[in-house]
Design a binder for these strands. Structure first.
Lengths: 241, 241, 241, 241
DNA sequence: AATGAATGAGCATTCATTCAT
DNA sequence: GATGAATGAATGCTCATTCAT
């Protein structure tokens, strides 16, 4: 017990904390936590696919129950309403990014960013339909559930933010508004999922990652001469109130 | 035919061609084209708002009829099914980008791109909810209707493509896969609509445009030394089948 | 037009005012008032029977629709929820008492009371199951609807109150707490409906009315000697706060 | 057997006989009678409250189990169906009147009746919601269960019948149809529960009892002259077939 | 004896679409 | 052309009851 491997332990912590984030928002009537976790997994597997194919509103509880060979009543012992299943699905999707693994080893900021982008984009590509689903159906969620998805997205962004700030501090990247550029990088990852109907005909994933990595690193490169706006003092950029 | 006023003609062409694109997909029972056009406009105005607020599936025909002070039966004389109204709405949204106005004046490619970005991003910001709607509800459309929205989006991209290709040809921009970078630029515009819940708290539109313009132009700048990958021969990048 | 008979007019007023009492509580989607009135009548006829037989909660909308040879959707164009049908039913039942006709002619208070009792009890007996229904299912209604049924019941009681007060003022009846005795009379009428499973085996309606009339008039008679409590000053009877 | 303390014995008899009346109608799977009796008591306590608040049909077995901190399965070991719990509840309510205590001491019939009324009305007032419940939900019971509640109500009435008959025989009360007048007295007691929403605002319980006692005794008083209908021969009153 | 997860028929309500007027 | 009442299949959710543990 005393000598658990840190990585295994962290993995465990992470899985647990995913449930911990979601469960308080979903009133389950079933007590046994391991059963609940199993059922959640089954629900996600079945529902994610259906939601992707037909959309949330066009997927019925009967569809989900049928695919799981379970009764509708059984589903409602684990969730209170249909939206809860969507929350489960989206939370699991967003959580994948927490599994990007140990942060890239120290070293050249550009290399660290490259690696982070590669991992992040690969996670997206591994399940593009889920990313699409998140864009399409997030609006269905309200209140705390909606907030949770937003929070989880922003938390994921933090890894990029850290690398960017470090790179800027070390003079490897040009100065920029880090929050915006962070989202640029994230967005260009999501783009693979959002526009795959077009991009997929042009390039494969590796080429896409290479292209976007070039684009991003080039955008961050410090330029000679007038490249970087001299007069720009970040703090003075007007914030919108 | 020869002496129509250019401006009137262009405006007319454009409006007509929007209808021309959409009408063959929508079986209206009403003959009078100007009446149809008027009703389409009313439908779009009412439905767009409702779809944005509640989503397509959660908006009823009664909602739309009620907002228009028209009968449900009347609506069904102009469209065949509910999805047609969505098509109308999305087509109108996508059409806004055709109105970017006269192409930027010849000159420095960077200046032309700057100007194009500025206009494009402003159009998005002028009606962010519609962009959001397009991302959320496009999947509802099937067949030709879905294809039309894709085509219209790609057509809009052409203006960026042209400027990029010109800039590369003239050595102002680094070499890159133009279709991808085009979509990057477009995507970072959509991002203002998609992530405004976050970005809107950080920057205002002008700052956003400035930041992204810097980002994009920096990404396109030719760099000293190894910045541009020497060994890269674009045509050899494997296409995905 | 100018010379409508008063009675006919009053009858008309009354029917209208019944609708006027109920309609503001029921959001109907149908405009045509005469159609609404007709449908309300049909709904009441079908639902009252079903509610009496099986109870409100055990009667389904399908039952009602089936009995009316109407679609469920049609019902929901006239009412917003199932409870509305119950309100309709109870309101109609309570309204029957407004039709007791012109108040008994002036004369001996005992005679007027006798006549009022006779009429009131006959109305109950004419549709005992509805009275039973009111006792059983009123609790289902909430808010304004519940209040309306209470108000209508109390309004009916007023006729008895007036006769009692008049009789007491004229020395024909002993002094008593009029509101309580009023409800006694009303209650002994309801009793015919509530306990008919027992009473119906013992007496017929006329005998019942005769018996109860004797009971009530005897109870109200002024007695010699100690019959009427001398020391009792009505105003001093403690009111419950 | 001979030397049990009277009080203990009576209490025991009564409790036992209540169970004896109900148990044959309820198939319990549990053998131990004292356990069954305890569970019945718990069920009644929990269910009565819930039935009063939400009605029988709107109270779920889960509600009851939850309130008792017992499993639904456990409940179904003591009763066969949900209706059994209602029977239990109503039987207990009706049984309260068996506990009116030793019959009023011999003496003046009016005094005995006064005392009986006082006790009976107090029992009702002590748990008015249960009386309301009986009126509302009795119809749910069918067959023997329904009959049992009717029988128990009529048995309670017997005490009043006896006093009335005695009073009439001794010339203290006027002649009347005893069964009807008995129910009048009972009904005016129930009225406190049924119309408390109105009466409770006018009088307190003691005033109510005083008022009704006056009303009833006055109704039973023999009057001078034509007060009592001479020509009336009770046996000839037509019975309803 | 007790538990509580599972079942699945049942129900209120919605809403796209039709069609008689 | 326009109206709006009617249709009825569809759907989310409930809950009495069962039964394996």
């Amino acid at each position: 017990m005393a000598k658990q491997r840190p990585s295994a332990r962290r993995g465990d912590d992470r899985r647990r904390s995913w449930l911990e984030r979601v469960r308080p928002l979903i009133a389950s009537q079933v007590g046994d936590p391991s059963l609940v976790e199993r059922r959640y997994g089954e629900l996600i597997a079945a529902a994610a696919r259906l939601f992707q194919e037909k959309g949330f509103d066009r997927t019925t509880i009967d569809d989900i129950a049928g695919r799981l060979n379970i009764s509708v009543g059984a589903i409602y012992r684990y969730v209170e309403r249909k939206e809860d299943i969507l929350l489960l699905t989206l939370a699991r999707t967003l959580w994948r990014f927490q599994k990007l693994g140990p942060p890239p080893p120290d070293g050249d900021p550009a290399q660290r960013l490259r690696e982070l982008i590669r991992r992040y984009y690969r996670v997206i590509a591994a399940d593009a339909p889920s990313t699409l689903l998140a864009y399409r159906e997030s609006y269905v969620l309200r209140g705390e559930a909606r907030q949770l998805t937003k929070d989880m997205e922003l938390e994921t962004n933090r890894a990029f933010e850290a690398v960017l700030r470090d790179g800027i501090a070390r003079g490897a990247f040009r100065r920029c508004r880090v929050e915006v550029v962070t989202y640029d990088i994230v967005m260009l990852g999501h783009m693979w999922a959002l526009k795959r109907w077009y991009l997929g005909r042009l390039v494969d994933l590796d080429a896409y990652i290479a292209e976007q990595t070039d684009f991003i690193l080039s955008a961050l490169s410090r330029r000679r001469g007038s490249g970087e706006r001299r007069d720009r003092s970040l703090p003075r950029i007007p914030r919108r109130v």
